[in-house]
Structure formats: structure tokens, C-alpha cells
Design a binder for these strands. Sequence first.
DNA 1: CGATTACTTGACACGTTTCAAACGCAGTGG
DNA 2: CCACTGCGTTTGAAACGTGTCAAGTAATCG
Lengths: 230, 230
Amino acid sequence: MGSRCDSCIVRDRALCAALDPAALQALGRIGVVRRLGRGETLSWAGDDAPTCATLQSGVMKLVVVTSDGEQAIVGMLFPGDFIGRPFGGVQQQDIVALTDVQICAFPRAAFAATLRDHQAMQELLLARTMAELDRARDWLVRMGHARAGERVAGFLEDVARRLGALGCEGPSAVVELPLGRGEMAELLGLTIETVSRQISRLKTIGAISLQGTRRLIVEDPALLARAAGR
Amino acid sequence: MGSRCDSCIVRDRALCAALDPAALQALGRIGVVRRLGRGETLSWAGDDAPTCATLQSGVMKLVVVTSDGEQAIVGMLFPGDFIGRPFGGVQQQDIVALTDVQICAFPRAAFAATLRDHQAMQELLLARTMAELDRARDWLVRMGHARAGERVAGFLEDVARRLGALGCEGPSAVVELPLGRGEMAELLGLTIETVSRQISRLKTIGAISLQGTRRLIVEDPALLARAAGR
DNA sequence: CGATTACTTGACACGTTTCAAACGCAGTGG
DNA sequence: CCACTGCGTTTGAAACGTGTCAAGTAATCG
């Protein structure tokens, strides 16, 4: 374990450590900081997506509209994550800010050129994309085999960890949930009502508590993990 | 085992078209053909996976063992698909042959070196990995929001298409299913019984018929697509 | 403060799982 | 050739969990 795990700081450090300064400088020259407010859409599914970017702060979601008109969230982006298709291909999802976010945007052609000049960066991007694939497959297992209670508990655990609040300072942790109940339902393939019921259940067994509806306190991480089926 | 392979990825048209002959020659020099029988495991989850490979013929599955001891199939590999982690990272799934298969295996270090020498190949691999990610996310939507009937119909449609039998010759098509009912259940997050019932239902409405239990005939592709919810 | 939105809780219907049994087919030995 | 056995598949009945519909409560914003 060690220091603050998995938070954006360490992720950035991993990126920095793996890259030589020249590569970072090259990126800096073509990058532009952009801010989006909560709810704003960075790009739409089917767009030619002329920009790539890295997420610097905040949380975003990847959304697809299903054939029956419902929205399904197929992924979340946390600080340090990469956005875009440097070598072509169409982004299949809308990318929407769940909180106020700050990104560093790169024109696609320029970003691709920078990748070509800096092997290590391209290799890192490939390794990350494969890691993302593993994460998507983990969710696939969850969606296929986990009951509602396990999905909700697993999601809360995941968010707490990826926002850096879990496993860092003592037994309990506080997180501001980036998603409302409806969005959790879209992500987990459940209904709002079921999500709400499962959260209530986690409260009654003492795994978590809430301040308002969005501030989550993980009272008993072990209990939460067990509810998630791990 | 296995012999030299001069045209390891010839079956992969897209790859060939995108790559210059020098890159293909370079791959041919380091690649070795291997065959696996149905049921054999190429590599286990957690292995350091010292080889990369492309699948030349047959079908393979990616399997994870869940915490409760069940197996879940999180992906399938068809001819032309890539296997492995050229730049490190641990393969998180078992890779098992569903049929007799033929692969072209590359030592990881040598494959990585070849990628470094041939930019276009590495870019292609990245693009493919991102496409694979999209496919995993499509399944994620299915697993989250589709009913049992839609999952089964969607799966059959997908297999028929990826094995090249659909959309090629007229209205009906014949496919040898690479998975038994139990494996379909593992893939779709259902039980054997439910899969069986849904297949029976697709027969009664005339979308498909069966010869034995594994030879599938798509009688009405449009009807099958509608049952899949598209 | 009221209006609007988001969340929670309850009762019932529906679909999937679970448990159980029957069926069909391939391989084996009488 | 047939009965027997083992395995995968199909079918049936009941239990369970989640979705649906409806109402009530808490939070947010003007």
C-alpha cells in the first residue's frame, strides 16, 4: 500500500515517471486547459472527435443511448485517465462531466504526432488502454453475476477507492458521490428504486452512512467489501 | 512445438492492408505456429504471460473465476484477434480454446521490439485495443439492460456474424456453435436452464432451428435481430 | 416560504433462478 | 442388435429478487 494510493496525484506521478521530460514538454506545447461545468458534454457519440485529452480533475461518464431510448453508463473517467482516439476510429459514447472538471486537450493530429515521436508515451497509452479493458471486463462480471446489493456495494467501494478516500487514512472515509441515484441506476443496470433500497440496506447494516444524499461515509470498509461479494 | 510461420497474420486482412511488407516479414521471423485442442488453456490468469499471439483459426474464450468460485466468460477471440500484453501488465483472464485452434505466437520481448521498429503496427494495435474496449462496453450495456431473450438472441447473432456466416449468402446461414449451453450461460450471466428455454423460444417463433444441439441455422436474421432488441 | 426536484418506501406483478425430473444422444459391453 | 450408462440438454413447478406503479418524504433553489 504505502502512500495515498490510486489518487490522481499518484497516477500523474506514474505518468511522469514513465516519460522523459522531453515528451512532457512536447505535450505541454500542444495542450490547452479547458474547464467544463457539471453536466456539460465534451463530445458526442459518433462525432469524429477531433481532440484527445487527459482528465486533470473531476469525474466524467461515458454514456451510450440504447436502442430503446434509455441511457446506459458504460464507464467513468477519473483524474489521470485518457480521452480520445489518437489514431482514428469513432468514439462510441457521449463523454459528459459529472462534476466540474478540468482537462488538458490536444488536437488529435498533433497528439498523434507527439506519440510517434515519443515511443514510451505510446507504449504507456497502449498499456493503459489494456488496463481499461480489464476494468470494463471486471464490470462485465459484476453486471452478469452480481445481485443488486453486490453491485451497489461494489460501486460505492470502487468510487471511494478511486477518489482516494479508501485505504488511506484509518477505517472510515468520506466521499462526495459524483453520481445521483438515477445515474447509479444507469451505470449498474438497475432502477432508481432498487439502488435506493440497497443503499438503505447498507445503512441499516452499518457499512455506510450518508450526509444529505451525496456525501458518503464508509463506516466499515470490510463490511462494505463483504456486501460487494469479495 | 510448432514450425516457422512466414505469413502468420495473413488471415487478418485489415492488418495486412494496413502494414507494409517489411513489418509483416519482421513478424514472420519471430512468429511460431502453435495448435491447441479444444479445451486446452493457452495461459492462466495471473501468469506473467511471456508470449503474445494472433489467433489464426478457431475460437477462444477469456475466463475469470469469480470470488464465489463460478466461472464467467468475459470475452471471445475470433480469427485475427490479438492476444497478450506486449508492454507488460498481467493478463487477468484464462485464455482457453473453445475449438481446435491455430495461433501464431511471438516471444513478448521480440514482439515489443518489432512494434518499436514498426510504428504503423503499434498504432494499429492501439486502435484495435480501443475497438475491443468498445465491444466490451457494448456487452456491458447488454448485460445491464437486456432481458434473457435479448441476450441469447444477441449472442447468437453476434457469433453468426463473427464466424462469417451472416450477411454473406442469402437469408439463412449455418454456424457451428463454439459454446455449449453451460458456456453460453457463463458468458451471458444466465443459468443453463434459462439459455435453453430462450433457445427453444427462438425455435418456436421461427427465427432459428438446430441440427443436434450445436449446429445453428439462422432461418430469419431479421427476426433474430428483432428478438435481440435492435 | 413555496415550488420543484430528488430520493425513499410500500405493494404487487413479472421474469429469472432454483430444484427436480425427463429426455436424447454417443459410447460401451453384453 | 440391443440394453445400459453418462452426459448435456430440455421441460416443469415453485421460490425469490427486481421491476413497475404509486405514494410519501427530504433536499434544493428561486
